[in-house]
């Protein structure tokens, strides 16, 4: 795989999410990108419900990415990311007495996948417990493993399609500029955005 940048697309006022997704898809198609199937990144969150003296309450996020269909990513809220076979889901079921799934917390980003030369562009609608929350875009540049070497190229493509976004790279990517990029880095970007969407949703509810 190459390097990936995931970022939210702000929906302008007065437009619906569906309209904006349609509009973005048209723009990408106009550019000459070719449809290449669909994609999905999903995340479920488990919360610890046991008490022992040494472990504070923990959250474990379980994520899947259709780009790595046989893999399951598990991230503890300390930031440690375990990359495992997809059967890791079964292991989580074995921990039912200790970790319980948070209800109404399932969040996913899914949509159309486009190939454009050496780039892969994904336009995802974010659904939290099946209700639409926003748009996440993912741009991947295949031929490179270090973000620092190709950031300007990616930025140029992103800005040519989506306008003046991402003047500076997201904070998470900045610290990864000079290290080799891997699939768990993509997942961590998604998790960061998913957590943002969840926070916004619960803040809206509280209002």
């Amino acid at each position: 795989m190459g390097v990936v940048c995931v970022f939210p697309y702000i929906i302008p006022e007065g437009k619906s999410g569906l309209q904006v997704v349609d509009c973005l898809q048209k723009q990408v198609e106009l550019l000459g990108a070719v449809k290449a199937g669909t994609f999905c990144v999903d995340c479920e969150t488990y919360q610890s419900n046991f008490s022992n003296t040494t472990t504070p309450q923990r959250l474990v996020h379980i994520l899947h990415n259709s780009e790595q269909p046989a893999t399951c990513f598990a991230i503890v809220d300390t930031g440690n990311c375990l990359v495992a076979d997809s059967q890791f889901d079964i292991l989580m079921q074995r921990l039912k007495g200790f970790y319980q799934q948070r209800k109404g917390f399932k969040i996913e980003s899914k949509g159309q996948r486009y190939e454009y030369g050496d780039f892969l562009i994904k336009i995802g609608s974010v659904l939290l417990a099946s209700s639409f929350k926003g748009i996440l875009l993912e741009v991947e540049y295949y031929p490179c493993a270090y973000l620092g070497d190709c950031w300007n190229l990616m930025k140029e493509l992103i800005q040519s399609v989506m306008g003046n976004v991402l003047e500076t790279p997201p904070a998470f990517l900045k610290q990864k500029f000079n290290s080799e990029y891997g699939p768990s880095d993509t997942i961590q970007q998604y998790l960061e955005h998913f957590n943002g969407f969840r926070k916004a949703a619960s803040a809206n509810q509280a209002r």
Binding site: L82, A84, D85, Q87
Partner: peptide
């Protein structure tokens, strides 16, 4: 029986989950 291949940080991962 469930056998899962994982990355090499599995020991720290389990410790953080509360395993000893």
């Amino acid at each position: 029986y469930v056998d899962v291949s994982t990355s090499d940080n599995v020991v720290t991962f389990l410790n953080e989950m509360g395993f000893r």
